[in-house]
């Protein structure tokens, strides 16, 4: 069996991020029925339209098999964990699915920093995040708060 190639994320520092800074995008796809079947096998939702194109079209009158919204939610949270490094922490995360994702779709997750502050000597960033399809359709929208280390730990209460 081949070894899984894991990725050692670089550390992101509070000092190096500004309001408006962009989060490096994360692309997933193109979606196949295998992508969906694997997720169903992990998560337990085997509703046939999640991996059976014929069922999706005939019973639910969809253009094809439809991705699990919870997988796309999970992808969007990975945008944060890929970015914040081993010493960052995701503190809050919220999202809403906006459009359906089908077999063949590729989704790119994006985001930017909307707020930067220090509270109880922790360094926080608030961010808006979203995922869009190859044609620009917004499929998921959300937000998150992360805590990051600083290169020079600031004095408690001092706003950088």
């Amino acid at each position: 069996m081949s070894e899984i190639q894991t990725i050692k994320m670089e550390q992101l520092f509070f000092d190096d991020v500004k309001v408006g800074s962009e989060i490096p995008p994360l692309t997933k796809g193109p979606y196949t029925v295998i992508t969906m079947a694997k997720f169903a096998a992990m998560q337990g939702d085997f509703y046939p339209s999640h991996y059976d194109n014929k069922w999706a079209m005939e019973v639910d009158r969809l253009p094809g098999a439809i991705a699990h919204g919870t997988q796309i939610t999970s992808y969007l949270s990975q945008l944060f964990t890929d970015w914040i490094g081993p010493n960052g922490a995701l503190k809050k995360f919220a999202s809403q699915v906006r459009a359906q994702t089908f077999v063949g779709d590729t989704i790119t997750m994006k985001g930017r920093v909307t707020k930067k502050y220090i509270k109880d000597s922790e360094n926080y960033l608030e961010c808006e995040v979203w995922g869009e399809k190859q044609d620009g359709t917004m499929v998921i929208q959300g937000s998150g708060t992360v805590a990051l280390p600083a290169r020079l730990q600031p004095q408690s209460g001092r706003i950088s």
């Binding site: 899984i4 190639q5 894991t6 990725i7 997988q71 999970s74 992808y75 990975q78 890929d82």
Partner: peptide, 11 residues
């Protein structure tokens, strides 16, 4: 399954 190979979960 989610294509998330962050070493924090594996190494």
């Amino acid at each position: 399954v989610n294509g998330d190979f962050n070493a924090l979960w594996f190494d």
